[in-house]
Measured scan of single mutants.
Amino acid sequence: MALNTPQITPTKKITVRAIGEELPRGDYQRCPQCDMLFSLPEINSHQSAYCPRCQAKIRDGRDWSLTRLAAMAFTMLLLMPFAWGEPLLHIWLLGIRIDANVMQGIWQMTKQGDAITGSMVFFCVIGAPLILVTSIAYLWFGNRLGMNLRPVLLMLERLKEWVMLDIYLVGIGVASIKVQDYAHIQAGVGLFSFVALVILTTVTLSHLNVEELWERFYPQRPATRRDEKLRVCLGCHFTGYPDQRGRCPRCHIPLRLRRRHSLQKCWAALLASIVLLLPANLLPISIIYLNGGRQEDTILSGIMSLASSNIAVAGIVFIASILVPFTKVIVMFTLLLSIHFKCQQGLRTRILLLRMVTWIGRWSMLDLFVISLTMSLINRDQILAFTMGPAAFYFGAAVILTILAVEWLDSRLLWDAHESGNARFDD
């Protein structure tokens, strides 16, 4: 018995066209964080690309023209004298008006014999932002004059995390709450300039795509075929072959399989920071003279006294001054041990922890910024005066060393310790 099946006739004509040209192939790229070699397709503007294995951002879609970056830099340069030299806060102490600005706080630190601690604050609040705007201006002028731009481009990517104007702005709020127990506070004209400078700096850093600047100024022929001998440069993120001198053909720094002496430098910085954190938390970090009496505060006791007036601000200072430094030390110690013992479990967790400490590390400088600003506000000789204690130097040095330890660690070593050939990683 035959089955009668109805015929289905399409209502619209289906047209099949042959592909007349070869589909576009992607360029081969190595991930600078996990060293995976993959094919990167062509990316349009405002599109980002991520590593298929570790999800690290390979290409950032946010990109401004150099002219727009230069305009932002010149605007920031105009704001800087007002943000640093004009009063941020006014207080009335014992019937006398006192003005506080950024430069005055750094000068008070240096004047009291601790120039190293003052230079830490100076670099993060004044030096690094000033280098940022002058570097962008150098790129703008240098591109037109045919100057060598490689050193500036190499420095810009590392400079971003040292620009800490946003953290200093939080420190202004913390210092205001600490001082309000002794005097009446009012915002100064410099505060508005400083807030504007923070906003412009944040926007500029978020749109400063150094890798795209490398592509514009020093374009290189990408690798179009897969080759395990391809290496990625950690300076400019170019994937290719080393030249005859073993250097990256684009930025001219040595092109090595792994960062040289990464573990040794990381261990040295980490152990030194552990040693410095002990006096930083045991010795007094601030000293207040009130009517001839002397009151010393460690980091913890200062947080407890701050909690009596504002528990939320005390929580912020606790996280930045105690929780973050010790968390960074514990995480980095764990990561280094996992590399030495070739741990194969929990790779995803370790990668996330490394990215976390990379982002939060700079916030530990908050305590030094609060001390710097408070020193310029309260300084009335023996009637009422505020000065920093010996722990300030140890704390600042420990924070900087932990930042350097994270920067010096080559994250690809975590993958080397893991089993080879993993296309995915999980716990």
Rank of each mutant, 00 (worst) to 15 (best):
I19N: 11
Q345M: 15
I126R: 14
I177W: 07
R25Y: 14
T15Q: 13
E407R: 07
D297A: 12
L283S: 05
T204S: 11
D60C: 13
S193V: 03
M164V: 03
F386P: 00
A392P: 10
C233Q: 00
L384R: 01
V331H: 09
R247Y: 09
F318G: 08
A49R: 06
V163G: 05
R221G: 10
L255T: 01
S273W: 03
E86V: 06
V406D: 00
L323Y: 01
T402H: 13
E86M: 03
C343H: 15
S364W: 02
Y138D: 01
F318S: 10
M1N: 00
P219V: 14
C233R: 01
I43W: 13
T349A: 11
L337I: 14
R68D: 03
F369A: 02
I199K: 04
Q344E: 15
G95E: 01
Q7G: 11
E161C: 15
A314N: 01
V152W: 01
A187I: 09
L40P: 06
I288N: 00
R260H: 04
S119T: 06
W267H: 12
I287L: 06
F38M: 10
T358M: 13
I316V: 12
T402R: 00
L354C: 12
A307C: 07
N101A: 04
S193F: 01
E296K: 09
A423M: 13
F38I: 08
A417G: 12
R380A: 01
S321H: 00
S193P: 05
I136A: 06
G20T: 11
L377A: 12
Y218I: 10
G118M: 02
F82L: 10
A423Q: 15
N422M: 12
C233L: 00
R424G: 10
Y241Q: 09
L300I: 06
Q244E: 13
S305L: 06
A223R: 08
Q264A: 01
A196S: 15
P52D: 07
V275D: 09
L197P: 01
G173I: 08
E296Q: 05
R216V: 08
F425P: 11
G235C: 02
G246H: 04
F333M: 14
L282H: 08
K57G: 10
Q244P: 14
S135H: 02
M388Q: 12
G26E: 14
F38G: 06
E86G: 04
M36R: 15
A312G: 09
R355D: 10
G127P: 03
W140A: 13
Y168K: 14
H46I: 11
A280W: 03
I303N: 08
T334I: 10
M388C: 04
L79A: 05
W140E: 03
L276I: 06
M76C: 03
L169I: 10
I91N: 05
M147V: 03
K342Q: 09
C251Q: 00
L3V: 14
L213C: 11
Q33H: 13
I303Y: 07
N209D: 05
W140H: 04
R150S: 04
L149S: 14
G190I: 02
C34F: 00
G240Y: 08
C266I: 02
M147K: 03
V179S: 14
E22V: 06
V399H: 01
M76Q: 05
A423I: 07
R247D: 08
R225T: 10
F425H: 14
I299V: 07
R226H: 13
Q264Y: 01
L79V: 08
L165N: 13
Y28T: 14
V163C: 09
V313T: 12
I167F: 04
L255I: 06
A196P: 04
S45E: 10
A115N: 05
T5Q: 11
D227P: 12
P242M: 10
W107P: 08
T387S: 05
P32N: 14
G113R: 03
H207K: 06
A391Q: 02
R226Q: 07
W363T: 04
V195H: 08
V324A: 08
D63I: 15
V16L: 10
S135K: 01
G105E: 03
L145V: 14
Q220R: 15
S39W: 14
V179R: 01
R225H: 06
C31T: 00
I339N: 13
W415V: 09
L23P: 04
D243G: 05
S273P: 04
T9Q: 13
I126V: 10
A128D: 05
A223E: 13
R260C: 05
L132K: 03
M332G: 13
N379S: 13
M103Y: 09
I96C: 07
I316C: 13
H261Y: 04
V170F: 15
H90R: 13
W359I: 15
G293R: 13
V399A: 13
M147T: 05
A70E: 13
D227Y: 13
A269E: 02
L271V: 09
A268D: 04
G389H: 00
F82V: 08
F326H: 06
H207L: 11
M164G: 02
R30W: 00
I322F: 14
M155K: 01
D416T: 13
F194S: 12
L271P: 01
V163F: 11
A398P: 05
A280Y: 03
W84A: 12
I371S: 00
V189D: 07
V329L: 10
D99N: 11
T117A: 09
A314T: 10
A398R: 02
G171R: 00
L413P: 07
K178C: 00
R25I: 11
V174T: 06
